[in-house]
Write a protein that binds this DNA or RNA. Structure first.
Lengths: 225, 225
DNA sequence: AAACTATCTGAACGTCCGTATAAAAAGTCA
DNA sequence: TGACTTTTTATACGGACGTTCAGATAGTTT
C-alpha cells in the first residue's frame, strides 16, 4: 500500500488542492464499499472493485493495499461519524431531562436509519455493509472492537434506567436491538414478500415500528424495579 | 449428480441394508452442512467439503452435484423437520385453549433454540447454517420460499390475536422476531464480550429473555385493540 | 530544463477454484 | 463365475483469483 507522503501535509498539495492520488484513493474506497455492501467480502474480487472505481488493477493495491486492508479501511472510515451522531442524539435526549428506555433506543437507532435512508448512495452502501458485516460474527474479530465502545455507552444508559438488570440481560437486549435494526436494512425484501405489499421505500419508514418493537422488548426483559 | 436408481427402492439394497452410496451421500451432505455453517457459501471450497467428509474430490460432485446443488440440498434436507416441530408446538398451544402473543412466539422460537442446543452437532450446524443464510437476503431467492409457508402460518396467528394490525406491521414483527432469534445463535460471542462474562453455553439459556423481548416488542407494535 | 517523486499501466506469476472424465475398484445379481 | 451397475480414484482443464513489479507517465520542486 502507498505510504503516507513523508515531509509535507498528507492529502494536500502546497497550493491546497486535494492531491491527485487522494481523490483516486477515495474512488477506490467508495467502490469497495459498494461492492462489499452488495456482495460480501469473499464474493468480491479486486478486479470488480477496480472496474467499479474505473481504475486499473494495480491502482487498487497501490491505494488500498490487500483485500483485507481494504475491508478494514472501508469499515473504519465512517465509524467515527456514525458514533458521533449517536452520541449527539444521546446528549440531546439527556439535555431534555427525564429519560426513558424509548429515548435511548431512539438515540441508538435513528442515526443508523437516517444514514441508511440518506440520499447519498455511499452512506446507504455503508449501512448495508454494516448490516452484512455485523450479522456474520466471524468476519474479522477487530470489526467488533470498532463498535463496542459506543455499544457500552448505551448499555450504561440502560443500566442507569434499570439498575436491577444483570450484565447478561443488558448485553442481550442491546444485541437483539442491533439485530433488529440491521434486519430492517437487510431484509426489506422479505417484509415486502410476507406482507404482500411493496416494501416501504426507506428504512426510516420502519422507524416507528422498530423503536416500538425494541422499546417493548427491552421493557419486558429488564424489570422496571 | 448421481441419478436415482431406476427400478428398485431408492436407498436400500434388496436385503434392506442402506445402500453404500447413500451413506456416503449423507456424509458429504453433513460435511457440507458443517462447512457452510462455519464459513459461508462463497468461502467454502468443494475440496474442503471433500476433506471434511473424508472422501475424494470426485465423490462430492458425484453425490452432491454442483456447489449450488449442495447448498440447496443441505438447506432443504431439514426444513420439513423444523417446520413440523413448529406446527406441533402451535397445535399444542392451540389445544390448551386461550392463546396469547407469548404462546405464539414461544411456539415459533423454541423449536429452533431447541435444535440449536441439541447434543447432535449436525443439528447445531444446521441452526448456524440457517442463521447465516437468513441474514443474507440474496444467497438464493428460493431459500426464502422454503420458510415462508410456515412464516405465514404464524403471521395468521398474530392476526387472529390482533385483528386491527396492518399487513406491514405483521410482516415486520415476524421479521424482527426471526432476526432476534437468529442473532442469539449467531452472536453469542458478542453478548459475552459486551456483558463481560462468559457466554451462556446453550442458546436455550437465552430462551426466556428472547421470548420476553419478542413478546414485549410485538405487543408494543401491534395495538391490543 | 533537469532531477525527483507520486501515480498509473499492463502484463505476468503462482495458486486454487469448480467441474469433468477415463479408468479402476467394489458390489450386485443372474 | 461372469456380466453388469454403482461407486471411487486419480488426474486434468480452463479460468479466475490476489498479488507483484518493471516500466511508462504525470506532476512537483529545484
Amino acid at each position: 500500500m502507498r505510504q503516507p507522503t513523508s515531509d509535507k501535509e498528507n492529502f494536500r498539495n502546497t497550493d491546497g488542492r486535494i492531491a491527485r492520488g487522494e481523490a483516486t484513493r477515495q474512488r477506490v474506497l467508495d467502490a469497495a464499499e459498494r461492492c462489499f455492501a452488495s456482495d460480501g467480502f469473499e464474493a468480491v474480487t479486486i478486479r470488480q472493485i477496480a472496474r467499479t472505481a474505473e481504475v486499473t488493477l494495480g491502482v487498487v493495491s497501490f491505494h488500498g493495499g490487500s483485500k483485507e486492508d481494504l475491508f478494514k479501511t472501508v469499515l473504519a472510515r465512517r465509524v467515527a461519524t456514525l458514533d458521533d451522531l449517536r452520541k449527539a442524539a444521546l446528549a440531546e435526549v439527556r439535555a431534555r431531562g427525564e429519560m426513558t428506555i424509548r429515548d435511548v433506543v431512539d438515540a441508538y437507532l435513528t442515526p443508523y436509519l437516517d444514514i441508511a435512508s440518506r440520499g447519498d448512495p455511499q452512506w446507504r452502501a455503508y449501512a448495508q455493509f454494516i448490516a452484512r458485516v455485523a450479522s456474520n460474527d466471524d468476519y474479522f474479530p477487530e470489526v467488533r472492537e470498532l463498535y463496542d465502545p459506543t455499544a457500552r455507552i448505551f448499555i450504561a444508559e440502560f443500566q442507569r434506567l434499570r439498575p436491577g438488570a444483570s450484565a447478561e440481560a443488558l448485553a442481550t437486549v442491546l444485541t437483539l436491538t442491533v439485530a433488529s435494526m440491521l434486519s430492517i436494512v437487510a431484509s426489506r425484501a422479505r417484509i415486502a414478500g410476507l406482507s404482500g405489499s411493496d416494501a416501504i421505500d426507506q428504512p426510516m419508514g420502519y422507524r416507528a415500528m422498530l423503536i416500538d418493537f425494541c422499546t417493548g422488548g427491552i421493557e419486558m426483559v429488564l424489570p422496571s424495579d
